[in-house]
Nucleic acid binder design. Sequence first.
RNA 1: GGCCCCAUCGUCUAGCGGUCUAGGACAUCACCCUCUCACGGUGAAGACACGGGUUCGAACCCCGUUGGGGCUGCCA
Length: 471
Amino acid sequence: MARHIESSDCYMKVRFAPSPTGYFHVGGARTAFYNWMLAKNSSGTFVLRIEDTDSERNKEEWVDGICDALSWLGITWDEGPYRQSQRLHLYLNAANELFENGFAYYCLCSRDEIDARNKEAGSTPGYDGFCRDRGLGTDSGGALRFKVPKPGETRFIDLVRGEVVFDHNHIEDFILVKSSGAPLFVLANVVDDIDMEITHVVRAEEHLPNTPKAILVFQALEKQPPTFGHVPVLVNEKRQKLSKRRDRVAVEDYRRQGIIAPAMLNYLALLGWSPKEDREFMTVSEMVDAFDMANVGHSPSFFDEKKLAHFNGVYIRALDNVEFMELSIPFIEQNPWWTGSKEDLEKFMAVAALAKERVSLLAEVSELIRPIFEEELTFDDGALQKEIKDNPNAPKIFEAVIKALSEADPFEAGTIELAVRSCSSFLDIPLRKLQAPIRVATTGTKVGLPLFETWSTLGKSVVLDRLNAQI
RNA sequence: GGCCCCAUCGUCUAGCGGUCUAGGACAUCACCCUCUCACGGUGAAGACACGGGUUCGAACCCCGUUGGGGCUGCCA
């Protein structure tokens, strides 16, 4: 589809304006990242604004969750976090101005009354303008509604969709201030965008129908609206918008599983956007340089955990061993066998490169390195049965390996391998068959880190003890 | 229901009128590598929703149909 507008290279002041009503989710993270990239590649400003005007639904802990998650991702804000709950006077001033200038009126209708009237008249849902000309005053105790000019239409150029037109006949006179005196989203949003001099509003597509309302308010306040861009929503496997209630979407969840921040950012950036060259792995600065709203797609994207995990694996493998260990330690600390001692760190270091290649989530590291730390080995019962108890060759394999091993000196991967291979040819059992029982005996499972390196890290006496225990 | 948005392999996408017997990536399968598992390598299978136009020529432009999504709150 032809693009009707190019995103400009000029200074952009953007904002990410989440509402703290639940876990910070991946869709929000993507929106934040897009905004952040726009600010970065225009030498602009990224504002964090917490839209907490709805005191019923907002919780302080969610605000912390948002800030923590953004910080973890490396999405830093130049201004804020502003709190709308602390700026109520600004919205009320604007509301008063709109009322004084005839752009808004007070309304006493309840939803039930409106619905009843619509039903009786056989008309479509939406406010019917009952109080429009009643001349109710500030002291009426009603809600303040914006008087949408009718007939009329509002059109604007959306950065991703091109020109969009809304007929005012389908926009009801929406509420700006509740009867309780609390300002609502559209009002607060617009007033802040004016006050903070936001130049570009990039947000999720679910806000597209709010945009003409916002533009009307900008105009009534005699301000130039910013440029808007609506990015497609993220959907689940059933192609419904990702929901905090229904779907697993919390950034925090992925972090706890061991997704690392750069992998998350890279994956998120590619959901709905792709650079011209169709590249996949990019550093943050490469993404910032390449990012362009003109290349943002138009249709919803499915958040695919499998592909995220693949990206994460690639990023983990690119880590150096020390970084890998530092990032992994929070995930292994909770194990009783991990003490964090110098010896533990040395053992971990010895297998870090091998472990790195075998995980796509940091939460998988524990299981992989557990055999080299545990005093009392935990066994996979199925593997124990199959590879040792039911294996007629097991006794002679143990006997031969124990004997060969005692001569392996120094006890290193190379000498161990020679010893084990000699058993293989001596017993005429292929190495792949021969390694199974001794692997289970010394690590508890049939899959894991390469055996010879594991043994050299474990030390000769531990290995011999574990082998002898199975005879 | 009304309004708006969208439509290329199962998924994320490349493609902006001829270079498309439609490219890449994830997932899947096969083979190779290999001490297990991974990693890596090679290969296979797999898509332009449908119908009309416009055009010498359409995945790309227009219209319609169908399908999906969003919104339709004194939530954001």
